[in-house]
Each structure stands twice: as structure tokens, then as C-alpha cells.
């Protein structure tokens, strides 16, 4: 118990980290896209937990709402819509160059690790308080982000809303039945 209480944060981290990695491996190894999607959901949840560990409670909530709640549902809808069984034969779910791809990815990761981890990143304390403080008052993470977002990052915030709008319109146009993608003749349907 003493070990548990002393290393609570570390234990939680490792549990969540293993969950996240396992989820990631599942995403790229399950043949069935539905299984991939469910293992991705596991990764999302684990990452949300890791956010909480790093004093980003608001972001953890956003992660759950947007990823687990929104994007994941969207994925599942699309998988159902396109009838995965028919379009994705079990035999050939991997690309022909899969071994080469895995080697390439691992090499890239190793290079990044070598480049980044060569320097020391010791721990510097006092971060938690700063993430919950507005003008010297401790007010909590969500309110602090609110202040930040609507004071210093108002213009990017507004621009990002436009990006979302454009994406929405684009998605609607792509998804329309008469999007003009079938046949070059531009067949029009009433």
C-alpha cells in the first residue's frame, strides 16, 4: 500500500500508457475496421486519462466529448454505411509493402528518439499552479483556458470556427449523392 500511494501517479501513467499503445497496435493490426475503431476508442480514453495526469482537465473532457463522442461515432457510421464486409476482403487488408513500411516507421521513430532524447529533459516543478491561474488568482483549469482563449487567442479561435464551417460544407458536398463524381458526363438527378 505504501508503494501504491507513493507511486500512484506512476502506476496510473504506466497502466494508461500500456492501454494507449495496445489500442494503437490494435488499430493497425485488426482486420475488421470495426475492431480497429473500438481499439482506437481505447487509445482515446487512455490519452484522456493521461491529460488529467498532466493537469489538463478541460482538455480531457474535450477529448472525451469530441473524439470518443463525436469522431468515433462518425467512424462507426461510415463503416456501417459503406458495408465493410463487401468492400474489404479479409485476405488483403495489408499493403504489399507492409514489412518495408514497418521498418521505415521504426527507423523514423528511432531517429526521432535519438534526436530528441539526446538532450536531458529534467523535471521543473510548479507547473500545475500556473495552468490554473489567471492574473495571480487560482481559478481552475477550465476558467484559465477560457481567459486565454477569449483574450489572447480570440482571432485564431474565430478563424478555426471558419475552418470548421468550411470542413462541414466540404463534407456535405462530398457526401451528396449528385456530387458529380459518378461518370464524367455530369449526370444530373432531380
Amino acid at each position: 500500500m505504501a508503494f501504491l500511494s507513493a507511486h500512484f501517479v506512476a502506476i496510473v501513467f504506466y497502466v494508461l500508457a500500456v492501454l494507449a499503445v495496445a489500442g494503437g497496435v490494435g488499430v493497425i493490426t485488426f482486420k475488421n475496421p470495426v475492431h480497429s475503431a473500438l481499439s482506437l476508442l481505447g487509445t482515446f480514453l487512455a490519452v484522456a486519462g493521461l491529460f488529467v495526469l498532466r493537469h489538463a482537465e478541460f482538455l480531457a473532457a474535450v477529448q472525451l466529448l469530441v473524439y470518443a463522442g463525436g469522431i468515433m461515432v462518425l467512424f462507426l457510421f461510415v463503416i456501417m454505411l459503406v458495408n465493410v464486409k463487401r468492400v474489404s476482403p479479409e485476405s488483403a487488408f495489408l499493403s504489399r509493402r507492409a514489412p518495408l513500411a514497418v521498418i521505415g516507421g521504426v527507423v523514423l521513430g528511432a531517429l526521432i528518439a535519438f534526436g530528441v532524447l539526446a538532450g536531458s529533459l529534467g523535471r521543473r516543478g510548479g507547473g500545475a499552479a500556473a495552468l490554473q491561474t489567471v492574473q495571480g488568482h487560482v481559478v481552475g483549469n477550465t476558467e484559465a483556458i477560457g481567459w486565454m482563449l477569449y483574450r489572447h487567442f480570440l482571432v485564431p479561435f474565430e478563424i478555426v470556427s471558419v475552418v470548421l464551417l468550411v470542413a462541414m460544407i466540404g463534407a456535405i458536398i462530398f457526401g451528396r449523392k449528385d456530387a458529380g463524381l459518378e461518370g464524367r458526363g455530369g449526370r444530373m438527378e432531380p
Binding site: 509493402r97 518495408l100 513500411a101 521505415g104 516507421g105 531517429l111 526521432i112 534526436g115
Partner: peptide, 22 residues
């Protein structure tokens, strides 16, 4: 003409650049 082919080339390029940097 394969998307994953392009992705692979991109990754290899990034790796090459990083290697040069290191």
C-alpha cells in the same frame, strides 16, 4: 499511384532529413 506508397516515400524522406540533421 498508391496513397500508401506516397506516405511511405514521405516517411522515408522525413527519416532521411532527420538522419542528415543528426
Amino acid at each position: 499511384g498508391f496513397a500508401e506508397g506516397y506516405a511511405m516515400v514521405m516517411v522515408l524522406g522525413a527519416a532521411a532529413l532527420l538522419a542528415i540533421y543528426i
